[in-house]
């Protein structure tokens, strides 16, 4: 067994670990464990995280990103930074880059909540699994 084998195995293990932690890319059916799939690798989803009042008030700068929400297998309303943003499928937002506090719910059931880091410009598809 050469010295390369442990290195390759380590790299593979790391890759798997990283892959499991990061939300999957948005697809027709979201299969990520967090229940949220993003279409852009630059975007980041931190489930159950929340922003402090200071972070919420922080000014965000840069070109906005067009963020569209989709719910896989049901309906739901999207709340961004503490306020109602819309109900799927009519949720097409223009969010400034940075962190945003997100909650998606169907009635009293919370489908997803956490912090979404929006990249600069471009567009982002967020798919939330209804489950």
């Amino acid at each position: 067994m050469s010295f390369r084998t442990p290195a390759v195995l380590t790299a593979l293990a790391l890759a798997l670990a990283v892959g499991a932690a990061a939300p999957a890319r948005a697809a027709a059916a979201c299969s990520d464990a967090s229940g949220v799939c993003l279409s852009d690798d630059k975007a980041k989803w931190e489930p159950d995280a929340s922003l402090s009042a200071k972070q919420l008030k922080a000014k965000r700068k840069g070109p906005a990103c067009k963020v569209a929400f989709e719910i896989d297998g049901g309906r739901g309303s999207v709340f961004v930074n503490g306020r109602y943003a819309g109900t799927v499928p009519n949720v097409n937002l223009s969010l400034l880059p940075g962190k945003h506090d997100i909650q998606v719910r169907d009635g009293q059931k919370i489908l997803a909540e956490g912090v979404l880091t929006v990249p600069k410009g471009g567009s982002l598809q967020v798919t939330v699994r209804h489950g």
């Binding site: 929340s50 309303s77 709340f79 503490g82 109602y84 169907d106």
Partner: peptide, 23 residues
Amino acid sequence: IEHASIGIDIAAFQQDPRCDPAW
């Protein structure tokens, strides 16, 4: 159904700690 559902979504969210207290 759609309007009542949205009303319930918002009413439920406004009781959630994530909701803006000024809303």
